[in-house]
Every structure is written in structure tokens, then in C-alpha cells.
Design a binder for these strands. Structure first.
Lengths: 366, 366
DNA sequence: TCATGCCATGGAACCGGTTCCGAATTGGGA
DNA sequence: TCCCAATTCGGAACCGGTTCCATGGCATGA
């Protein structure tokens, strides 16, 4: 009857050393002589031994895992940030434990279980507003917290100035000579507090005011975050007759798509009858040639995760705040420039069965 | 000087009982009298005590976490499945540890660290082919493994018959009278083995053969999974002159988008000059009115996760296999039917600042 | 009244690592 | 040759739960 599981004690016995020595070897301590190091490593190899995560977690007092709280994960922009976060954490050897938060109750539940049970060493919140009382509790427990796509005083965060973004988008339309500029955005939600759309709206108002144009609330509309809703709202704006907007700033590309679809229904030519600019620079905006405001989404994720890694390594002293840069991507929906050819260079070759574009570095199967 | 951390011993001492009793209370054992139960619960409440995850993991011998291996996570279809998985796991009180796998090396690294360190109780692989030797190792260690969007004998899996799907899509085009039907798909990749596109291709060939049409490899093209690549490939097909296809089956909606964009460049009318059908029923296909094959993506995730939960609870005896149903969603890109109005009913109301569509059940901020 | 058995309970042993203290060995200098 | 310091190492104590066994109390039946 063999021993069931091989533990550190098994290795120690087998190698003829103490458990302490094996542990030192595992953790790369320099307090081990060359000879023993080799012997222990050999034994580990031979027994195919790996230390158990939960055991080392318990004695080390940390989990080597980071909790990621994500607001409605299905949104492409949120997704992109998440990918950035996961990649960096993974490279740092940290587990990424993902929690999808659809509403306030879920947020509370996840937070309390994460925090109280100490399941993770740190928390990254993406596009999410954390209740104040939770923040203080997290602070008291000294659990690192990093905000991505959000900003709070005295907390490390990677954020984007949505007000400036809204201003830039509106200014783009103003620079093209538009004066009647509409705004279509998300409902302001109190529960999860994704305030991005409202901030962009604020920027929109600022830009108008700076241009000496008073706000016309008839040109402003909000609804759920979907193309269909945006289409309905756009339709309402189009029916204003000669008072209808000549340009629309949609607070996200998803909404811009709905606006454009609806414009086509109304036989409005883009951009001559109606100029449109979105926000996020999602893939769909490039496909549909929609002008937009580019956010470094992936980068916001990687930056945030890097901060977390530094925090866990005790490398950052005080809260670090990083603001990422935005830029307007003018495309056909506002400029009307001739659509350009695919930017990437693709070489089509004759494949075994039909045409083929080979991918760089990829191994292909015949 | 107060005690630093409150442990189960603290609670036991405070409540005047043994640690065993507290543990029993925590785990809902019925071996505790009403009176002590109340007293212990009170103490727990008063001290705001929560058991430490890693400690219970160590002694219980399980982590209450599930590893999720995901192939290129950015693909919308993969994403949708992931969301389904996370939601179910979360409801079951299991942590979802996500690993993004971009290439074979990463897959190996993640797998070995997951498996050897026993970081998780089970593994869910989404749209991923696991190397045989890994499978046998996982089997030997008795770690539950569930495949989503993939199928292997003797393993629990949730899969979709891509061959049948490819056949359905092609038959749809055939039924509209098309005879010269092109195929645009992904490169067959050996490393991660996402064979979906190739399987759909197989279905395409079967449908053609059943209709008495021999395959014409001049109408077949493969490339990277992007709209741009698809556009380039489509362009090549369009330049075949009178031998050009009158219809194209794109193995995913992303590719179909590229095909349609390119058709517009070539002044081909959709669907009169060219009918197109995609695959996946992504949001973009509905926006652009592209016919497609609907896969229950979210459902595949939830089903897979449910299997995992059952497995971990020891409820399933032998490998359970579930095949989900597909259906063709005919839209304008093949039928040319008048575009329909938004399906959802939205009521536009006058909001505090502009128009507004209220969301069901959502709390709104003024 | 005493034997029997069940139920609630305390607490030691244990899960598998890490850490720290003390001991053993070695090397160098006096 | 002896002593001291540095280096290497063994192993007990510990992290904070869970589990199981032994124990004490109480009720039941004879």
C-alpha cells in the first residue's frame, strides 16, 4: 500500500533532508547548498511533486489570486478591459477570479464573500462603482483595490476622462459646421453607477456652451444600452421636422449603430443629412465606418492589472492614478470620406482546398 | 492589545464552546442543539467572523473553485459561452478562475499549473482541444473535466453539431435556388484546434453533394478570423467574372460582415446579386440584417457549468453528453424581406433632460 | 435502581505547506 | 590548536479550519 498523496514530507524523506529544506528549495531561498539543491530538485522531479496551493495559501497568508468584479460583462468595452486584466495577472502568476455583477444585490453579495473570506489578495473593479461603506471596509482590511474605468479619490485607478471625451466628440461635429447637435446616451443608473454616458453628456454640454450654443433638450435622449433603443430614440429626433439635429453624438458605438440604421430607414444620407459620431472604437464602428472616440480599452485593463501586481509586491507606496489619452477617430459617418481599403496587408495564396490567407507565425493544417 | 485575527478558536472561546461545535454550526450540521446553535450564531454575528477560505480548502481537500480555460477570449461567441458558465458557477458558490489561452504553449502551462497544484476542483474547457496526454492525466487524478463547444468520447460535454449547422446554412441557400455557393471560413489551426469552421465546411460539402452539386474549390477560401480578411477573400471570389458565386456561406457572422462590406464595394446588391448567410447569430448579424445560424451560446455555457456542478456534487454517474439544437435565422441578406421594426416595444417618455426610454425594473436617477 | 443507548459536545489529530530557532558543520583567523 | 562567525540544515510550532473519537448527560426500558 503506497502513500496516497505525495507531500512535502514525502519529498523530504525521500531526499534525506528536512521539510524546511525542501520548502526553501521550493521558494528559491539562497540558504541551500548547491549539492542539496540538486538532490532535492532531483527528488521533486522524480516524484513529480507539486506543492498544494491551498496549503501554501494558508501558511503564507495569501492566495495569489485576484478578484475581478465586472459590470455587465457582455458589453464589448468591458470585455476588452477584462481581457487586458486577465492577461497581465496570468503572466504574473496570479489567478484571475471573475465575478459578473449584474445588479446592486449581486455586487454586495460578491463583495462580502470576497472580502470576508479573504478568497483573494486584491480586487480589481471594472466599470463599477463600489459603495462607500465597502470601500472603507476594504481599506480597513488593507486589501488592495484598483479601479479600472472609474475614479475615486485616494484610490489607485486607471480612468479615462469621459467629460473630455464627450467634449472632443462634440467639438468634432462643431468643427464640421454643425450647430444642431443631438445627444443619445444611456439611462443614468443608480445601482451600478456606470456614469460614463452621463460624463460624456456633460462634455457635450460644455462643448456646446463653449461654442456659444445653448442646450436644446429636445435634441437629447436616453435609453437602455442597445441599438434598438437608440434607433427608437433617433426616430423621435428625426421627427422634429426642420428642428431635427444635423448631427448626433451617441455615447457609445452600439448606440451609434442604431442611430445610423434608423437614419437609413428615414432616408437620411450619412453624413450629408446626418453626421454621427460614436464612442469606444469598437470593431463594429470600424466595420460600419462610424466616426468614434478611441479609448485604449485593452490598455486600461493591462495598466490596472499592473498596478495590482505592484501593489501586491509592495512596490507602490501611495495611490497611483493614471489617466489614459483619448483621440477622435474621424470616419465616413461624419466626414464622408471615401471608404478606405483594409489596412492590414493580406496576401491571398492558392491553398490545398481553395484560396487562403496565411496567418503570420501560425502553424496551419492541410 | 486585541487579538489580530479572529479565528474559529476565538469564536469558540467567546461562545464558551469547543471549536468542533463552531465548525458544525458553520457547516450546518444537525448535531447541534437549538440553544448552542443560537448562541454560536450570535457570537459569530457579534464578532463578524467569517471562516477563511484557504484554511477550509486545506482541510476539506477541495477549493470550491473551477478553472475555466478559454480559447481566444475576444471572440464574441466564446465570450457568450463564458458568461453563461460564470453565472451558473457563481450561483453555485463556486469561484470562476479564468485562464485565457492564446496558443499551445499557454495551454500547456496553464493546464499543468492548474492540475498539479490542485488550484481548482474541476476544469471547464471552452472551444478548446485538450491534448490527449493531458486528458489521461486529468482522468487519473479524477479531476472533473467538462468540454463546452467540443466533444470527446467518454467525457461530459456540451457540443453543437457544426457539420449539421454547415449543412443547414448551405441548404438554406440551396432552397433559395442558388447553385454557385461559395464558402469563406477560418484557417484550420492545429495548435488550439478550433475545428468549428472546418466542420461547417464539411457540412457545406455534404449539402452540395446531396443536391447533386460537385464542390468547386475556386469558390472556397479561408483566412484569419476577421472581417478584413473575409473582405479580401470575398473580393477574390467576386473577380471570377461569370463564374463568381451567387451566394456565400461564411462560417461566422464576423466573416459575413466582411463579405457584405466587400460586396457593397463591388456594387453587388444584397441579396439579389449575392446572398449571404453567416453563423453564430451575433448581435452584429441582427443589426446588419444578416441571415445566420443560431447557436444557443449562452445556454451552452450554462449547461456545461451545470454539469460541472453536478459532477462536483457527485450527482452524475457517467459522462453526460448534451447536444444543443441549431436553427437557421433567415434575414435580409438572403431573403431580402423588408427590414422589420425593432422587436422590443419601447415607450419613449419625456424625461427630466430630454427624451427617455425607461428600463424595466431599473431604478433611474434624475 | 441500574444498564443501555443516543445525543450533544470538547478537543486532539490532521490537512500540507512556511517559518523560525537552535544545532551542526565548515572555514578562517589568532 | 582553539575559537568564533558564517553557512546550512532539521524539525517543531504554526496557519485556521475539519473530522473523528471519547466523554458526559439524559432519557428510556427492564
Amino acid at each position: 500500500m503506497r502513500k496516497r498523496t505525495i507531500s512535502i514530507a514525502t519529498v523530504a524523506a525521500e531526499a534525506g533532508v528536512g521539510v524546511g529544506t525542501v520548502s526553501r528549495v521550493l521558494n528559491g531561498s539562497d540558504q541551500v547548498s548547491e549539492a542539496t539543491l540538486k538532490r532535492v530538485l532531483g527528488t521533486i522531479e522524480r516524484l513529480d511533486y507539486r506543492p498544494l496551493r491551498s496549503a501554501s495559501s494558508l501558511s503564507k497568508g495569501r492566495t495569489d489570486a485576484v478578484g475581478i468584479l465586472v459590470s455587465v460583462i457582455t458589453r464589448p468595452s468591458v470585455m476588452a478591459r477584462l481581457v487586458g486584466v486577465i492577461d497581465v495577472l496570468s503572466d504574473a502568476g496570479l489567478d484571475a477570479v471573475v465575478f459578473n455583477v449584474e445588479n446592486r444585490a449581486q455586487l454586495e453579495r460578491h463583495l462580502s464573500s470576497i472580502i470576508d473570506q479573504r478568497r483573494v489578495d486584491g480586487i480589481i473593479a471594472i466599470s463599477l462603482r463600489i459603495p462607500k461603506e465597502r470601500i472603507t471596509r476594504i481599506r480597513k482590511l488593507a486589501i488592495p483595490l484598483v479601479l479600472v474605468d472609474n475614479s475615486l479619490p485616494n484610490l489607485p485607478c486607471v480612468y479615462i476622462d469621459d467629460v473630455a471625451g464627450g467634449k472632443m466628440a462634440t467639438e468634432h461635429l462643431l468643427s464640421l459646421g454643425h450647430r444642431r447637435i443631438g445627444f443619445i446616451g444611456d439611462n443614468a443608473r443608480s445601482d451600478l453607477g456606470m456614469s460614463a454616458s452621463e460624463n460624456r453628456y456633460a462634455g457635450y454640454l460644455m462643448a456646446l456652451e463653449a461654442a456659444g450654443i445653448g442646450p436644446d433638450f429636445d435634441l437629447v435622449a436616453r435609453g437602455p444600452h442597445s441599438s434598438e433603443a437608440a434607433a427608437v430614440l433617433a426616430s423621435a429626433l428625426f421627427e422634429l421636422g426642420k428642428r431635427r439635429p444635423t448631427a448626433i453624438f451617441a455615447s457609445s458605438d452600439t448606440l451609434a449603430v442604431g442611430v445610423i440604421k434608423e437614419a437609413q430607414q428615414h432616408r437620411l444620407k450619412i453624413p450629408d443629412d446626418l453626421a454621427v459620431i460614436g464612442y469606444d472604437n469598437l470593431e463594429v464602428s470600424s466595420i460600419l465606418d462610424i466616426s468614434t472616440v478611441n479609448q485604449p480599452l485593452l490598455e486600461s485593463g493591462t495598466k490596472g492589472a499592473s498596478m495590482m501586481v505592484s501593489l501586491l509586491n509592495g512596490e507602490i507606496a501611495k495611490p497611483h492614478r493614471e489617466e489614459l489619452v483619448l483621440d477622435v477617430v474621424p470616419r465616413g459617418s461624419s466626414l464622408g470620406i471615401q471608404r478606405n481599403s483594409p489596412t492590414k496587408l493580406y496576401g491571398v495564396v492558392e491553398g490545398p482546398q481553395g484560396l487562403q490567407i496565411l496567418q503570420g507565425g501560425e502553424e496551419l493544417v492541410s
